[in-house]
């Protein structure tokens, strides 16, 4: 995994959500940026919807249902790319 300073703010923010909401207290294994979050058991259909709600609120966007696709949401980097296409990154 990349060192923290090399990660973008979006990636850090998404990982912080995963650590807080998707992993157990004693877990110290955060997913890599390209790891498939579904294959790692970190999110499933229910987890994805909560994650989306967080992202929508955090970045003040509305994610249309049509956009729920693996290429947009399967990994931290996929979500980051998707978000970068939707918001202005400072």
């Amino acid at each position: 995994m990349l060192k923290e300073k090399q990660m973008t703010d979006i990636e850090k923010n998404l990982l912080a959500y995963i650590q807080k909401e998707c992993l157990s207290k004693n877990s110290d294994s955060l997913p890599g940026l390209d790891d498939d979050l579904f294959d790692a058991g970190i999110v499933d259909s229910a987890g994805l919807i909560s994650f989306l709600a967080f992202i929508e609120k955090e970045y003040h966007i509305n994610i249309p249902d049509e956009d729920l696709l693996p290429e947009n949401f399967k990994s931290i980097s996929a979500i980051t790319n998707y978000l970068s296409s939707r918001i202005y990154v400072r």
């Binding site: 992993l23 157990s24 004693n26 877990s27 294994s29 790692a40 058991g41």
Partner: peptide, 12 residues
Amino acid sequence: AEENFKSRKEFL
């Protein structure tokens, strides 16, 4: 039990 595992997948 889940609290004793380091990763979600290991637990599953």
